Amino acid sequence: MLEHVHAADSQRAVRRAATNHLGRARGWGVFDPDGIGRDELFDPAATVLSLDGVDDAPTSAVVAAVARTLYDARVGDDPPPRLPWLLVDEAHVAVDGVAGPALRTLLTRGRAPGISLVLATQRPAALPAVAASQADLLFAHRLTSEADIDALERASPTYLSGTVRERLPSGRGEALLVDDGTESTHTIRVRARHTPHGGHTPRASEVATVVDDERESDRYERPNGEL
Rank of each mutant, 00 (worst) to 15 (best):
V63H: 07
R191V: 03
S161A: 12
A46G: 13
G29L: 00
G29F: 06
W85T: 05
S217P: 11
A135H: 05
L103Q: 06
T144S: 10
V93H: 04
A131Y: 06
L176W: 06
V5D: 02
R142H: 08
D52G: 13
F42D: 14
R215H: 10
A131Q: 01
A18M: 07
P157I: 02
T195G: 14
D218L: 07
L41W: 08
L176K: 07
A46K: 13
A175Q: 07
D150H: 03
D213Q: 12
L2Q: 12
L86T: 05
T195A: 14
D56N: 05
R74N: 02
Y71K: 11
A13S: 15
G35I: 09
E183G: 08
P169W: 04
A13V: 15
R222N: 14
A151D: 03
A67C: 11
E216T: 05
I36L: 08
V130T: 11
F31Q: 09
I149W: 02
L41E: 02
A112D: 14
D148G: 09
T105N: 03
L49K: 00
A17F: 15
V98D: 03
T163G: 02
P33G: 09
R123E: 04
A8R: 09
D89C: 01
R142Q: 03
L86R: 04
N224S: 08
S205C: 09
L176N: 05
L117C: 13
P33I: 07
E226F: 14
G23Y: 11
R16N: 03
A131I: 11
T163Y: 03
R68C: 09
V130W: 11
E183S: 10
L107Q: 08
P196R: 02
E146T: 15
F42K: 02
A208W: 03
G199W: 01
V190E: 00
L160C: 08
V93K: 07
R24V: 01
D56W: 13
S156E: 10
E226M: 13
S217R: 15
T158E: 14
A132H: 11
H6Q: 12
R154M: 05
A155Y: 06
A132C: 10
L138W: 11
R26G: 13
G97R: 01
R165K: 01
R111G: 13
R189L: 10
R68P: 15
P223L: 05
G173A: 04
L160M: 02
P84V: 02
T59I: 11
S10F: 15
I149H: 03
R203H: 01
S170D: 11
A204R: 00
V178A: 07
Q134P: 15
D34C: 10
H4F: 09
L106A: 02
V178Y: 06
